[in-house]
Nucleic acid binder design. Structure first.
Lengths: 193, 193
DNA sequence: CGTTCAGTTGACTAAGGTCAATTCCCGTGG
DNA sequence: CCACGGGAATTGACCTTAGTCAACTGAACG
């Protein structure tokens, strides 16, 4: 149950046996069905989440259209960080796409862990830095690359997304329409023949 | 000389008199001419910078084209954070656009300040969070909004950019070609008549 | 089965890119 | 002080690409 999250922490920081015990004592398990909401855009995000199993999607609704910002899979760590950190609503919807088992830590618990051990502070800082880098990369990729190239790179770098996510969500993730993605797919397929 | 940077820190954290003295003792002043390089993409960024006066541009070179990522003005705080934090080259070029006076802090000095006082750690975390939020916003804006809308919002939210930056750089910042920006401008102007 | 919704396809439209020509602006040197 | 040169900005004509709209197919589920 807790092996995977401990491994995740160990990658970014060093936890003493005591740290591990403290962390585990604060974690709660949540089981959700397919297509359940985890957070709505007008809510404050009070938790950070670790995915034991399942798939989760971040999206915003703009002019009635759902714009997918990110997908998360088993062993990913996520939160609406902006909301979590600022304690204000973050304009972000979070849903499950499949049945999902989450481990959650509340804001208060995170603060207590920070007080308990500098290892947790280091973890928090690194997570923040990681996500910061990730969004810079996503931004420049969107600014600079064509939809086709972004699709091909998604194929190469995140085959899970291609494999498990419905096309219309991938399209909105790439910033294109489902029809365009459908044509891209055909084009790519043909170029292999 | 140091008033502005102290004010900047005060907005995000609380510095004791001692903290302020320590900070000032580590700051170095750098004066640069128009169009000088501050960082090249294959270099490791060893400093964080505060702009006393002047204008600075972040850009990447992709297929021989300069893609502008950000502009900074007086009272802004910047660094190639990814490079600074990871101690690796960050694929980012930084130039001045005008004569510029900078205050700089080295990586080592930042680490020492972190040790000296938790106030600096708080500052570091908040900067990181601020930039993280900023890039999420930029990303979603790029994903969701039309060039015209992004131009209009730039006009409203960052008039300094419109006022002081040459069009071809604004175009690359918006992710469009100079010709397209030129046409957008005309269109917007006409719609006011 | 039949309904529903995702996915595909076709025909057309619109938006932005490309290329080339021209004009504008500004700094420099005569 | 003026003329010139060069880069920036604008404009026009045309092209490419993605979006739109509508029809159709197909798979999933009750």
């Amino acid at each position: 149950m807790y092996d995977k999250i401990l491994a995740y922490y160990s990658n970014l920081t060093t936890l003493s046996h005591n740290d591990e015990k403290a962390l585990i004592s604060k974690l709660k398990v949540i089981n959700l069905k397919k297509r359940e909401s985890i957070l709505k855009e007008d809510q404050i995000c009070d938790y950070v989440y670790f995915i034991n199993s399942g798939i989760v999607r971040f999206y915003q609704v703009v002019n009635g259209e759902e714009k997918t910002l990110e997908f998360f899979f088993a062993d990913d760590y996520f939160s609406s960080y902006e909301s979590f950190l600022t304690r204000k609503p973050g304009n972000l919807n979070i849903d499950t796409l499949t049945d999902t088992e989450l481990l959650v830590l509340s804001y208060e618990d995170v603060q207590e862990l920070y007080k308990l051990s500098a290892s947790f502070t280091t973890f928090g800082r690194k997570i923040s830095e990681m996500y910061f880098s990730k969004y810079i990369k996503k931004y420049t990729s969107l600014l600079v690359k064509s939809p086709k190239r972004r699709y091909l790179e998604l194929h190469k770098n995140r085959p899970k997304v291609i494999q498990y996510i419905p096309s219309y969500m991938i399209a909105s993730y790439l910033g294109i329409k489902p029809e365009t993605l459908s044509r891209l797919k055909k084009e790519v397929l043909c170029s292999y023949n």
